[in-house]
């Protein structure tokens, strides 16, 4: 398993994609921006580049010839995706924290980068994983339509929740508030986000294994 992850890290993933989270994270320093976009860059840029590289370098063939189980091939790939997602999320959260200190008096139109917002981001990535990973493993090399569907779903989730955050007084109160009660609620949303992210990523992995077993390499 570890060997498979290291194979991706050493051969397939350009170091740029490990620095990219810091570049994108810095976008959190733009005051009062739509911060959902920061993590969406992962879906828009990192994922297609990564999967194009796997395809161009015949990674599927390369790995299939080696003594590794199909299940582990999927597990390692899911860990790589989840690992990069968390790297993006954590760096963005750190930059978000700095952003809140830099601009303390901002009257946020879009979600402020608080814990509740990161909870929503985790759900967005969970939806992305749940759609992208199983759809990709139908062939294990074609990723275009899987990416299109997953990005659309993630953007819809971001768009609808942001719209609710602006339009709906209750949702607005929960996500924009800074009182102790609201912060507590935001913490719960973050925890719920973590649980949903873990659960959906595991489901995505299981579905992907099932499909990958049927793939003719």
């Amino acid at each position: 398993m570890y060997n498979l992850v290291m194979k991706d890290v050493r051969l397939a993933i350009h170091p740029f994609f490990f620095l990219f989270p810091f570049l994108m994270g810095a976008l959190m320093l733009i005051p009062n921006w739509i911060y959902f976009i920061v993590l969406l860059y992962f879906c828009w840029i990192t994922i297609p580049n990564l999967f194009n590289q796997f395809k161009a370098q015949n990674d599927l063939m390369f790995t299939s010839v080696m003594p590794v189980a199909k299940r582990d091939m999927v597990k390692a790939r899911v860990l790589v995706i989840v690992g990069l997602e968390l790297l993006h999320l954590v760096t963005a959260a750190i930059f978000g924290f700095i952003s809140m200190i830099l601009y303390p008096d901002t009257n946020y139109l879009f979600f402020p980068p608080n814990m509740g917002f990161w909870g929503l981001n985790l759900v967005m990535l969970a939806i992305f994983n749940l759609i992208f990973i199983p759809l990709f493993y139908k062939t294990a090399y074609k990723f275009g339509w899987a990416l299109f569907a997953a990005v659309t779903a993630a953007m819809l989730f971001a768009g609808i929740s942001q719209w609710l955050g602006i339009q709906n007084a209750v949702v607005n109160d929960i996500f924009y508030g800074t009182d102790a009660q609201q912060v507590k609620l935001q913490t719960f949303i973050l925890i719920a986000g973590i649980l949903i992210f873990v659960a959906l990523s595991i489901i995505a992995y299981r579905l992907a294994v099932k499909r990958f077993r049927r793939v003719e390499i």
Binding site: N3, M6, K7, R10, L11, A12, Q57, N58, D59, M61, F62, V65, M66, P67, V68
Partner: peptide
């Protein structure tokens, strides 16, 4: 598969990597 060696003419893997780097990855398996 530990005891099988396989080579396919005309299909290449990770062509932009150095022999050294590829071996370092493969040997771990």
């Amino acid at each position: 598969k530990q005891e099988i060696g396989y080579a396919m003419g005309g299909v290449d893997f990770y062509t932009r990597s150095k022999v050294k780097a590829l071996t370092e990855v493969i040997k771990k398996f």
